[in-house]
């Protein structure tokens, strides 16, 4: 005997249909997709560690980290594996880039967030972000064929065709959009009420920007600096094209130098034999670079958490 109630209950009974089967498979498929990138990352780190360990079987760690000569691509017993020249090259370019990008990026962010009319901002910000999408090889040739000749024709007539200075300037220009855009985001998220309070006490726009908005957004602004610097450390094409291939422990920006990244490009595109010490040195340098950028990224995260403002 059928009652209306039992018919109703039947409708809710679980049935195996293509819909429920599919619904069961979907999350597993999605998980696999997510795992691909995680596993790739782990794979890369694993390879890096293994090859780096092999490198250190041949070259003592202390010699690598304190040596002041890097001649890895020389033949036979002229090879020296002291990473300091590559680190100094990287730091030189990074410091120069930061010197260019931090003031200009912050100034652009202040203009966009505090001065620009809505219409101007709506045009400028996307343009700035497009700048961030230009391939770095284009920046590299810009440095080599425009900035270097310009510098040699004006302030530094004695400078060589490859130099850290023009690479630093152009790496700086490359990271301006990133710093400007992230800092602007941080500054625009400062509540309007706080600005109004400052204006209502007779602040000028500049006072509101520098004494109220920038301090209130400081965690985001500093995080944008650190991320920008981290990009500069890892930047490859510009320095490979414009900064030269002469590993040198120097802090003179008009010198030709070599960065860690540029060495890796040079070594990997040269004719070193697979399994040689020079080959393994690519991984050791890569590991050093990875440690640098990872520290910067962790620092950025720490700063934005630790100094987060609550409004």
């Amino acid at each position: 005997m059928k009652t209306a109630g039992s018919v109703g209950m039947d409708r809710f009974r679980k049935q195996r249909t293509w819909r429920t089967t599919w619904e069961g498979i979907i999350p597993k498929l999605l998980l696999v997709c997510a795992l691909v990138s995680v596993l790739t990352t782990l794979g890369i780190v694993f390879t890096l560690i293994v090859e780096t360990a092999r490198f250190f079987e041949e070259i003592p760690f202390v010699q690598f980290i304190t040596g002041t000569e890097w001649t890895a691509l020389f033949s036979g017993n002229q090879q020296k594996f002291g990473v300091l020249p590559l680190i100094s090259g990287t730091l030189l370019v990074t410091a120069g880039a930061a010197l260019v990008a931090i003031p200009l990026g912050l100034a652009a962010a202040i203009y966009l967030s505090e001065y620009a009319h809505d219409r101007v901002r709506r045009v400028l910000k996307p343009v700035l972000e497009i700048l961030a999408g230009i391939p770095t090889v284009v920046y590299g040739f810009f440095a080599f064929t425009f900035v270097t000749p310009l510098l040699r024709g004006t302030f530094f007539p004695d400078m060589g065709p490859f130099n850290a200075l023009s690479a630093s300037i152009v790496v700086g220009i490359m990271i301006i959009p990133m710093i400007a855009s992230l800092s602007e985001d941080a500054m625009s998220s400062v509540p309007r009420g706080i600005r109004e309070a400052a204006y209502a006490m007779g602040s000028t726009r500049l006072e509101v920007a520098l004494r109220v908005v920038v301090p209130a957004a400081l965690s985001g602004i500093i995080a944008s600096f650190v991320l920008g610097i981290s990009r500069a450390i890892g930047e490859t094409m510009i320095v490979t094209i414009a900064a030269g291939a002469t590993p040198k422990l120097t802090f003179d920006p008009t010198d030709s130098i070599q960065t860690m990244t540029a060495y890796m490009v040079q070594a990997a595109s040269g004719d070193i034999s697979f399994g040689s010490t020079a080959y393994k040195s690519i991984y050791a340098v890569g590991m050093t670079l990875f440690v640098f950028t990872m520290i910067m990224n962790l620092l950025a995260q720490y700063i934005s958490r630790r100094f987060k403002e609550e409004y």
């Binding site: 509540p191 009420g193 706080i194 109004e196 309070a197 400052a198 204006y199 209502a200 006490m201 007779g202 602040s203 006072e207 004494r211 109220v212 301090p215 209130a216 403002e309 609550e310 409004y311």
Partner: peptide, 30 residues
């Protein structure tokens, strides 16, 4: 200068994310 003479208190409390002292000292300082 007009706004210095005509102070304003807003609907929602809007202290600066600074110390109590620096909040009050902000106006005199600027």
């Amino acid at each position: 200068m007009l706004r210095k003479e005509v102070g304003m208190v807003f609907q929602a409390p809007n202290p600066f994310p600074k110390s109590i002292y620096d909040n009050v000292a902000y106006g005199p300082r600027i």
